[in-house]
Design a binder for these strands. Structure first.
Length: 127
RNA sequence: AAAGUUGGUCAGGCAAUCGCCCUCUAAUUUAUUAGAGGGAGGAAAGUCCGGGCUCCAUAGGGUAAAGUGCCAGGUAACGCCUGGGGGGCGAAAGCCUACGGAAAGUGCAACAGAGAGUAGACCGCCUAAGCAGCAUUGCUGCCGGUAAGGCUGAAAGGGUGCGGUAAGAGCGCACCGCAUGGCUGGUAACAGGCAUGGCGAUGGUAAACCCCACUCGGAGCAAGACCAAAUAGGAAUCCGCUAGGUGUGGCCCGCACUGGAUUCGGGUAGGUUGCUUGAGGCAGUUGGUGACAGCUGUCCCAGAUGAAUGAUUGUCCGCGACAGAACCCGGCUUAUCGACCGACUUUUCAC
RNA sequence: GCGGGAUUGGCAUAGUGGCUGUGCAGUAGCCUUCCAAGCUACCUACAAGGGUUCAAUUCCCUUAUCCCGCU
């Protein structure tokens, strides 16, 4: 039975954690709705997630909460494929146009694209 | 039954799985596991008012600024609520109402108009006399009288009618309005009625200045308190100085600090706390027209700190709106698909 | 979360209880052989709603949008 919990250890908590991701972006992936920055720890630690949702893009608190919950839920179900990575997800203006299920599909696709890029990075580094 | 008015309640339900936050209990590897319980709103929103709480200086005096504005009550308090009065709308139930003072003072009113506030005389009306005419009358119209009618304007210094007059006029009278003084009812706002005045005292604007009455110290949990790396040096006590400077009130008075000596601790990053038992909810009862208050019983009902309520599936229905706590309450305002319960008004029909 | 401020043509910026100016831009004409400059004319505004007033861009209230300060 796989563990799909989402504890505090899997969140980026301090400003130091956020800074390390922002200063050393190894992989960048985005759509019109969101932007994902990835820091590669290159080990088997649990993946960690941080969210940056600007009031400018999503004005109502209800929309911001929905955006964060959807991404957390998707992260929770995909975490075992994402080990060793730290993520920062930022909202973009287009986030308002998607409803919950549609946003979830977009996020799921983004994880797959990041994994592909990571594999390519490792290949170039090894060669 | 239809049309309408008004008060209140609710804000998808149930089940399964995977997850999140807090509390309690137990176990241990001391941050995990297991069990139990709890987990957004009527507006949590806007931040428009009022209070608690905390610090500033102990919150004192004066002045400025600001706010409120029919009366009485409720409340911790309010710009809120309840009841009543005046005014407006409606056939009614009912709804709306910044509703003190312009007979203390100052100011403002474009354009038009004769005249815009100590009124005014443009067109007019009347008039001695003259001319015409048999005459009713018509024309010109001195000295003057007059303000009814016309014109302008948002507004023209009481209104309507009758008398009166050369023509007119509160000039006189009646009714209405206004003012003053009693009276009656009401806690009061106010209402009713009487007498007198005789409109030369009195148009509008106070969300113009202002006057009157009442309220008000300032900041805000990023308040504040505690534990504490690195780095840099400060704090308390006593003595001295009232000149200057500093300080959290817009300003003044008033108040505290400063310089020297002695003594020893101080506190930025970060963390902890403040953090939820409260002007609390529910039920009953008593008082009150009511807002509400008293008493009795009972319950504990979010407390996060990248910030918790979600996702998937099934099922039912009326197919689910606006929208997410961040110190806490009382209001107001704004957003909102709907559902249910009660009270009242009018019309029609039946008995 | 708390506390402040702003909104005037396409852009920038005055203004005040009685018909909204000014500059740049745009359009048309004049001038010039043509262009530029210059001159003339036109065009397009008081964020939205309600109230006070005879009259509101101005005074008052509500709403919307934007900006700033306090970790």
């Amino acid at each position: 039975m796989m563990d799909f919990t989402f504890k505090k250890a899997q969140k980026l908590l301090t400003s130091k954690d956020f800074k390390s991701v922002f200063d050393h972006v190894h992989i960048k992936a985005g759509t019109g709705e969101l932007l994902v920055l990835v820091f590669d720890n290159q080990d088997e630690r649990p993946a960690r997630l941080g969210l940056v949702v600007a009031k400018k893009n999503l004005k109502r608190a209800v929309d911001r909460n929905r955006f964060k919950r959807t991404i957390r839920e998707s992260f929770r179900t995909h975490q075992h494929q994402l080990k060793g990575l730290d993520f920062v997800v930022l909202s973009r203006r287009g986030a308002l146009t998607l409803d919950g299920p549609a946003l979830k599909r977009v996020v799921d696709q983004t994880w797959r694209r990041i994994l592909k890029k990571r594999a390519a990075n490792i290949a170039t580094r090894d060669s």
